[in-house]
Design a protein around this nucleic acid. Sequence first.
RNA 1: GUCCCGUUCGUCUAGUGGUCAGGACACCGGCCUUUCACGUCGGCAACACGGGUUCGACUCCCGUACGGGACGCCA
Length: 470
Amino acid sequence: MTTRTRFAPSPTGFLHIGGARTALFCYLFARRTGGKYLLRVEDTDRERSTAEAVEVIFEGLRWMGLNPDEPPVFQARNAPRHLEVAHQLLREGKAYRCHCSKDEIDQLREQQKTQGLKPRYDGRCRSRSAPVAEGRESVIRLKTPLAGAVAWEDVIQGPVRIENNQLDDLILVRSDGTPTYHLAVVTDDHDMGITHIVRGEDHLNNTPRQIHIIEAMGWTRPVYAHMPLLHGMDGAKLSKRHGAVSVLAYRDAGFLPQAVNNYLARLGWSFGEQEIFTMAELERHFDIAQVGRSAAIFDQAKLEWVNGHHIRATAVQDLVPPLLEQLRRKGIAEPDPAYVAALVPTLQERARTLAEMADKALFYFVAPTAYDDKAVGKHLTAPVLEPFADLVQRLDSLEGWNEALLEATFQATIATHGVKMGKLAQPVRVALTGSDVSPGVYEVLARLGRSESLTRLERCLAFFRRRVAE
RNA sequence: GUCCCGUUCGUCUAGUGGUCAGGACACCGGCCUUUCACGUCGGCAACACGGGUUCGACUCCCGUACGGGACGCCA
């Protein structure tokens, strides 16, 4: 039998980084076991579900590379089937109509709470014999076994056992005639042939209720794997106040999807002492049974480190499109892809995100309008003026313009003047970039080109002369 | 309040009765070097607490504390 997993987001907002992790685990489990990974949109909350949210979630999953193996299922469309199941249970006496009003139940819960009990419906309609006034609203509730317990072997949590007396008769169909979450989930999972349910630990308490529906229908139980939740740096459940929680926010911040996947997979799971994984390696090694049971805290600093690794390991051509986007955001109207491709190798090991890479690439597009004060004070000093002027002269009369030639010119200059390379290279860096931090000077000169380089150098030389004269 | 789960360096984790408790990020320092970064070497730093069980507990059991989740006609 081939395994089938599903990621089942509800489209009430963006794709949360925690949801993305759940999707990733579903996906990796399916890949590892040679099964299928499916997607089901749980849009049964008519009030909060939106088409925009569906699109945003799809976009997030697409970006992560977590594309389902079959077309997505939209739960709301299966409502007739869900109701059919509810009515079958009703006919078989496994469910019943409950006419209690919301107020009545609220009151009951309130009362139970003050008594220190777990608030739950007491099943008062279960054996109601008195006829009910015609037209009064009703819901359909499942008859939950009164005694006994539900137990299952959770792939991540281990053996789990919940006493039935902790449960109440859950609602299958609302008073407006629409199916509830539990009914829909169980029915769809069955109909979709889901064999393994990988989801957040927040669903652990839902599992026994869902198992009861499954048992009532005589369906086979899927295997469950409840993964620990993700927490923010303060230890609380990850939420908006923890900053970027939408996966698309990570894309926009310049992270690579393979890095996000890598980091997310390592949260709660490890494989020897390996930290960096390609998607293919994750598909090969990720073992959900080895996932730990405690919640993990999302650490952006480590994500950045992982991202830096992937930036260095990714082919230039694959870095160009997202980098172009980052550059546009920084105000570079129409960056030339070929030019950008030439710049990438000079920046790859200097950036942890593509946004940072774009920042560091800016000088390639715009000549410095001012020189960093500290850099000027440190490197544009009187003793270097002569060697620097001589270098500019030599570069100006250079025939040809490539890194080897440039280096030879620098070497000849320092030999003539008896200065150290650092003394000469730093002013050049300032002239070219405005600061004393940049990729190698030969690399920069080569990419900027002869004309632009000389323009920047001459301008700086003039500035340098004025400064020394003062 | 009730039920369920968790607890090893600040963070992610290895560890399944006998280890100097290992690795990674971050942080600090050295090296490399035309700067930064990469790389590399080294440093700092943890078994929540209290009882058991045992010749011996991070590892097993019980309790406490702390944290999280769940208790909807939301999903």
